[in-house]
């Protein structure tokens, strides 16, 4: 692939002191896709997770969708009596809604998971945690993926 042919004039305009070249941003859609919601319900066995107790950390503006760092942390004492059993991450617009599903317990000590994911396009992400008392908590984030410039020919 290569840069658009309008680019040359763009660059030359730039060289003449004109403003920014067009910035291609794909904005996330407003409504969540149904595949995402279904995948979450499959994970929770039909329960609607309540927002809170979960933090989902991801850069709001991603410079390359191939490798996006993401961290999920859940507030929990992580004891035998009260801990996080599972943490799952879902996305809206990749070909499949699942990203990662982790199983942990009191021996993890801390309910925190970091990985790197692919984002085909701008979209919403949802992290859901299953607590040892059977409740589900969640957090979501919107991510904007900018288009890569000079990629493989």
């Amino acid at each position: 692939m290569s840069w658009p042919s309008s680019l040359r004039s763009g660059i030359e305009r730039r060289a003449l002191g004109a403003g920014l070249l067009a910035v291609a941003l794909l904005r996330p859609a407003r409504a969540e896709r149904s595949g995402l919601h279904e995948a979450i319900l499959a994970f929770t066995g039909g329960a609607e997770p309540a927002e809170g107790q979960v933090t989902l950390e991801i850069p709001p503006l991603v410079e390359n969708g191939n490798t996006v760092p993401v961290t999920i942390a859940v507030e929990s004492p992580m004891t035998e009596e009260a801990h996080v059993r599972r943490i799952a991450l879902f996305n809206e617009r990749n070909p499949q809604p699942n990203v990662v599903t982790a199983r942990l317990g009191p021996r993890a000590g801390r309910a925190r998971l970091a990985t790197r994911m692919r984002l085909a396009t701008s979209q919403r992400l949802v992290a859901v945690a299953e607590m040892s008392d059977g409740r589900f908590r969640s957090a979501s984030a919107d991510v904007i993926v900018t288009l890569a410039a000079c990629v493989e020919g």
């Binding site: 191939n66 490798t67 996006v68 996305n91 990749n94 070909p95 499949q96 699942n98 990203v99 990662v100 982790a102 942990l104 021996r107 993890a108 000590g109 801390r110 925190r112 998971l113 970091a114 990985t115 790197r116 994911m117 692919r118 984002l119």
Partner: peptide
């Protein structure tokens, strides 16, 4: 899932 980046990175605690 396939949405995990190439050369998978995982960080967790014990």
């Amino acid at each position: 899932a396939p949405a995990i980046a190439a050369n998978p990175f995982l960080s967790f605690s014990v």
